[in-house]
Design a protein around this nucleic acid. Structure first.
Lengths: 201, 201
DNA sequence: CCAGATATGTAGTGTTCACTACAGATGTGG
DNA sequence: CCACATCTGTAGTGAACACTACATATCTGG
């Protein structure tokens, strides 16, 4: 029994192209025709490789979060909670206005509200965002234990807050805000984390 | 020349129903069939009254922002910049988790990313959000002039910040966060505005 | 009561959508 | 070289979409 004809395209390269289409148009706004054209393949190849449109989205999300997690590891490596927040939000201001990518964040642009039959998509995106929030929360728990954050601070609430600001910045970026505007938001937002930081003596 | 047969439905009541459908499913996710059923009318009545799907959305947005502006007037009537931010964000935590409405905010849920042919929808929503931001900015400009905000503060950046947090909270609400979680975010967020407030002597 | 004007309900229109049947191409194991 | 397995391109499939033609109903002005 033979192995069959080998695939002629690289799955990860194709996923990068699909990611960009979902990023720009959202899950429902992206059509199979746009996706296949961007990926440089025909529909049967797409379906053989990824199952269906939703499977393709999940594969694209896997790739997106994988790359993003590398960066998140750098973020939480910052020495203090305040620096974690600053590194995260300033980094997001940069990344979400990087002309190499569509504006905003795939985990937001992908789809906040969806029609009947795609109800699971917003939850899928929310689950991925929650992963980042958990990572932040763990980091802030540590910061509190280290005395970096005040004993009265709530690490989970802080993580939720930073996550919420990130999402808000993503929406702003996708609707035309420039890098400077996002940096201003990040700069103000960091001050709330500062307010929860212990005084440096 | 006669006036013609009068319309048998109330436009504002119908708009309220349409608003809810757009709110829950987004512009692209909402179908004409869902809209007409919720509005209790047939397609020809919808098109005669609102032109097309996008016209219906704009009419729904007009109604939404009209109601919202009444509330925003109350928000900016708070005595200090800090209280404005608190009233706004805490109010949003309440409103976006009010079971009487779909979760989140129509100006976010309506559509962040759209497919070809609906590119103007996200901009339309962004323009409405910008109105609220302008109102906040004007209020913060006044707060700075009154010495309520520090001389070094940036009212426009603060307004952008509060607006961004609002949007982030909307996304969280639509993906299942409860009222308490949003209130925690609001509570942390207010502290950034507090940090820009002059010390009370 | 009639002419003109607008609204309504039924029943479609063409288009676009996600998805696939099928035939031919290209690989492996024997 | 042959049986088999998998991929690829062409050309569709039925379903759902936004939108509308048309006949009928209900109003106003004269």
């Amino acid at each position: 029994m033979g192995m069959g004809r080998p695939r002629e395209f690289d799955a990860e390269t194709a996923l990068d192209q699909a990611m960009e289409v979902f990023w720009r148009h959202g899950y429902e706004g992206a059509t199979i025709a746009q996706l296949t054209e961007a990926m440089g393949i025909n529909p049967p190849s797409l379906y053989a490789c990824f199952g269906n449109k939703e499977g393709l989205l999940k594969a694209a999300l896997d790739r997106y979060t994988k790359l993003r997690n590398v960066w998140m590891d750098e973020v939480v490596a910052a020495p203090t909670a305040r620096d974690v927040a600053e590194r995260m939000l300033m980094g997001i201001a940069d990344k979400q206005t990087d002309p190499a990518n569509p504006p905003g964040c795939l985990l937001v642009q992908g789809g906040i509200a969806c029609g009947t039959g795609s109800e699971s998509v917003p939850f899928e995106l929310a689950a991925r965002r929650a992963e980042n929030e958990d990572q932040l929360r763990d980091r802030f728990v540590r910061a509190k234990a280290e005395g970096d954050l005040k004993p009265t601070s709530d690490p989970a609430a802080l993580a939720r807050y930073v996550s919420a600001v990130s999402v808000g910045m993503g929406v702003m970026a996708s609707s035309g805000s420039d890098r400077e505007a996002l940096q201003q938001v990040a700069s103000v937002a960091v001050q709330a984390v500062e307010a929860q930081s212990a005084d440096r003596t």
